[in-house]
Every structure is written in C-alpha cells, then in structure tokens.
C-alpha cells in the first residue's frame, strides 16, 4: 500500500533531521571530507553579507564553488565555538539559529556571530542554502571599529 501524503511528509522530515544532524556533525567536527559529502554537486548557496568584506559570502553555484568559499573562510578565520540554539525540520527543509565565535587569524580578534540558516535537502544532501546574519555588526567586528556614517 503506497504511503499517504502525511506519511510521506513525516518520512521526509525524519530523513531531513538525520541529514541535518550529519551536516552539523561534520561542520562542528571540522571534517571537510564528510562536510563535502553532505552537499549536492549542484547546490544553490547564498550567504547574505557583503562580499567586499567576506569573500566567501554572496551567491555560489555548485559544490566546488561553495567549498572554494569555505577555503577562503578557513584561511582567514578559525572557528572556535559553534552551537545550535534552535533547530527546525519541516519536510525537505531544515533551519538552525546558531551562535558562534571565530578567531580572525590576521588580527587575533574574536568575532562573535549569530546566524540564521535554511537548508533544503535532496537525497540527503544540501541542495539549497540561505544564510543570514547581522552583517553590519560583523563587518564592524572584522574592521575593529564602528562605521562612522
């Protein structure tokens, strides 16, 4: 007997929850190979922040481009703390509200960041990502001063 729509949705949600846990484990564990395996080759990725300050931000299409962005991130920063304060899963989509700290390697400044993350999974891999942060606050932390506008 075929699954009913509500059962299908529930099954998708369970699969998405597992995929999200795997993704977060790979990220917090710093396991780049495992992290790469969590992304679809054709992932549509967008982190809403100025690329003029954060070269890894903006729109990225495809796993290779996303991971080139991650490499730039890891060249300039070391993630020293990351935890998920809230997590939601609904069908193919998952979302996290996360809190983290990064060490800016060039200045040894600690950057405190909160992010809102939205992931759509396809066959257990991230096919779409949208990331949000208070980008002006992060820019000011990175520059080490408030913008005087």
């Amino acid at each position: 007997m075929p699954l009913q729509p509500t059962e299908l949705a529930s099954q998708n949600t369970a699969q998405t929850r597992t995929a999200l846990a795997n993704l977060l484990g790979a990220f917090t564990g710093g396991d780049r190979e495992r992290l790469a395996a969590c992304y679809d080759d054709d992932v549509d990725w967008l982190f809403l922040a100025p690329a003029s300050v954060f070269p890894f931000a903006g729109t990225r299409r495809g796993k290779a481009e996303v991971f080139r962005g991650f490499e730039v991130l890891f060249q300039s920063y070391r993630i020293t703390e990351y935890y998920v304060e809230a997590m939601l899963v609904d069908g193919d989509w998952a979302s996290t509200y996360s809190v983290g700290q990064m060490l800016q390697l060039a200045t040894q400044r600690t950057i405190r960041i909160r992010t809102g993350n939205f992931y759509r999974f396809r066959d257990g891999k991230v096919a779409e990502y949208r990331g949000f942060t208070d980008s002006l606050d992060i820019v000011e932390q990175v520059l080490g001063r408030e913008l005087d506008f």
Partner: peptide, 27 residues
Amino acid sequence: RGFSDTFDTAGQALGRELDDWVPQERS
C-alpha cells in the same frame, strides 16, 4: 529572533553605499 543583511539594508536606509567605508585592501 529576526535577521536581515543589515549592511545592505542600513545602506539603503541611509541612501549610501556602505562599501565606501570599507578599506580597499580588505575588498
């Protein structure tokens, strides 16, 4: 909890391009 790309929205609200405040060597 609400988030937006505040670097962009603040620039729109102020009617200025905030990238002009960012040192060029970082851009």
